[in-house]
């Protein structure tokens, strides 16, 4: 079995904090390319919105506060919208704070969706913040954030 990169990534965060104490130079050398390159949560959201203002409200992200295994975390996003031709949700995007990539998923909805409600299962490398952003048909953006504590399994498989 292969080493789980998410777990390796989770371990890395701890190491990073340790190194930050006085070995910043080493830190940069020791991190893989993606850990340095990944945009921050806010940068990723800005890319999605094109820099538009993001308001709080009208959307709710459900995320379990305590996660048994970060490999499959059930989430549901609900946005308040009549879902008519004139007033509907166009897109719902989900972003994370600490995975190797900030993007999780982007859903494209239409008035024929009926409700603006989507569920899926996502990976969380470690305890972190997750943000859902809804884009309305009037071009406004609304967001909801939640955080989860991810516990690690006691018994993991061998790496050979």
């Amino acid at each position: 079995m292969h080493e789980d990169p998410l777990r390796a990534y989770a371990g890395l965060v701890g190491r990073r904090q340790f190194l930050r104490a006085g070995m910043t130079g080493l830190l940069v050398i020791s991190l893989p390319r993606w850990a340095v390159a990944r945009p921050s949560l806010d940068e990723a959201i800005r890319t999605f919105t094109g820099g538009a203002n993001v308001l709080d409200g009208r959307v709710r992200l459900d995320l379990p506060p305590l996660v048994e295994n970060g490999n499959a975390v059930g989430i549901t996003v609900v946005a308040e919208s009549p879902m008519t031709e004139d007033d509907h949700v166009r897109r719902i995007a989900v972003f994370n704070e600490k995975n190797p990539e900030a993007n999780v998923v982007v859903f494209h909805l239409r008035p024929r969706s009926g409700h603006a409600m989507v569920s899926t299962r996502i990976r969380l490398a470690t305890s972190q913040v997750v943000v859902a952003v809804a884009e309305m048909s009037d071009g406004s953006f609304w967001s909801s954030r939640a955080s989860a504590i991810v516990t690690l399994a006691a018994c993991i498989e061998d790496l050979s």
């Binding site: 999780v104 998923v105 899926t120």
Partner: peptide, 24 residues
């Protein structure tokens, strides 16, 4: 086309997606 999604590596193995539609 009534619904679509762009997936990234943070979507779990054996991807599951639930959504709604108006029955027309």
């Amino acid at each position: 086309e009534v619904f679509s999604a762009d997936l990234f590596p943070a979507v779990s193995a054996n991807p599951f997606i639930a959504f709604t539609l108006v029955a027309t």
